[in-house]
Design a protein around this nucleic acid. Structure first.
Lengths: 216, 216
DNA sequence: AGTAGATGCGACAGAAATGACGCAACTAAT
DNA sequence: ATTAGTTGCGTCATTTCTGTCGCATCTACT
């Protein structure tokens, strides 16, 4: 990826970064945006974009590769294979949320098969599965759970949280979002115990003891 | 929508249906498919598609409108406002899953603002919120839950289940998927009780009583 | 059977995006 | 200061999709 025949000049490297950042911004708002729009957002001429990225496809691929690298780092930094499952789950969620919020477009694209990014995604997936396996062995996840389903649910919850967190900026917000993701993943949104024998209470009136259990 | 100057001839009406069905199929596989591809899949000439739908946009809009109608019917048929919350939740999930599996493309698009479909979506959303409110009052959903988050999670789970159910065809499969969606929504994938005092068990070894509770 | 409507086919025009070039002006590195 | 690399601008060719039209043929309704 970085193995060019010769090192880039400093200004050229800056331009590449600027273009990629602009591409992420523009494409997040409209995934069908043209090279022209991306160039305008980057403050460069359209031909310059084409000089750096031969085709539109190449630009997107580079963008995905860049984001995937950060994604990978975010997961690894949480040490999902060694720290206690619950801690790892929370930390991974926090780190991934930050990346997903900042790289919405690039993270929503599948990596080209055979690419470096594809390998990284596969590696992340394997680490995720391993984490869930450990969580199950530790009694954190129910023993009868289909781990593939658990992973899918986890990914989906993170996606929702990231969507919700797009406008938030304060540091604590990501932590709160992550806490909710983990809590929902493990316990759902239901009350702890089911009130009636079959769980089928009346339609709307206050049937059971309304208090049930205030917090969770 | 159906108020044309004159009724369509029978064959023309068949053609419109055929085109819409083909469009759903083709666009589900590639949302950027051309009118040419859609026409080919429908077995008609490209010009015929343009005769029935002036622009590509109009075609997609009609497709969304058609699917949204079915979506709406699927929700209403489950009587989410009157049946017991848990029953309604399951029935809505089953019905919606069937529509989402068969109308993957159309259901993945937002309705044009101001359109009939947009009103239907809003109505469905209101019914969903009302259902969750009732579920909370009945003690099915924890009282402290953010209902908007609950709805988002619910939508996301249905989406995942629909994605998984794309290849399935046997009747019971949808019921099983729906059961898993509702179960996960309410209870998550975690074990019922947290083993340790803080939930932080050892990294991988069998720490707590592995049996915990065999099934759910 | 007769008529109005529907379709297939070929052709055409227009728009928009992509990608490539050459040249003049500028800038980083030596 | 020299040199090599970089950028902006204008231009051009090509491709692809869209949308329209006319005409011959066929088909549904009465």
């Amino acid at each position: 990826m970085e193995t060019k025949g010769r090192a880039m000049r400093a200004d050229a490297e800056r331009t590449v970064r600027t273009i990629l950042e602009a591409a992420e911004r523009v494409l997040a708002a409209d995934s069908a945006a043209t090279m022209e729009q991306i160039a305008a957002a980057a403050g460069v001429a359209r031909t310059t974009v084409h000089r750096r990225f031969a085709t539109r496809e190449a630009l997107v691929e580079a963008l995905v590769a860049w984001a995937t690298e950060r994604f990978h780092q975010a997961v690894e930094a949480a040490r999902p294979l060694t720290s206690p499952p619950l801690v790892a789950l929370h930390q991974v969620t926090v780190n991934v949320l930050q990346v997903k919020i900042g790289w919405r477009f690039a993270m929503s694209r599948p990596a080209a098969s055979g690419s470096e990014a594809a390998y990284e995604h596969a590696d992340i997936l394997a680490q995720c599965d391993e984490l869930f396996r450990r969580a199950r062995d530790a009694g954190l996840v129910a023993s009868g759970t289909d781990l593939e389903w658990a992973r899918r649910v986890y990914y989906a919850l993170i996606h929702e949280a990231a969507e919700e967190g797009r406008e938030l900026v304060d540091a604590g917000a990501v932590d709160r979002l992550a806490a909710r993701v983990v809590d929902t993943l493990l316990h759902g949104v239901g009350a702890q115990a089911q009130p009636g024998p079959s769980g089928l209470s009346g339609s709307s009136g206050p049937s059971g003891p309304g208090a049930g259990g205030s917090a969770r």
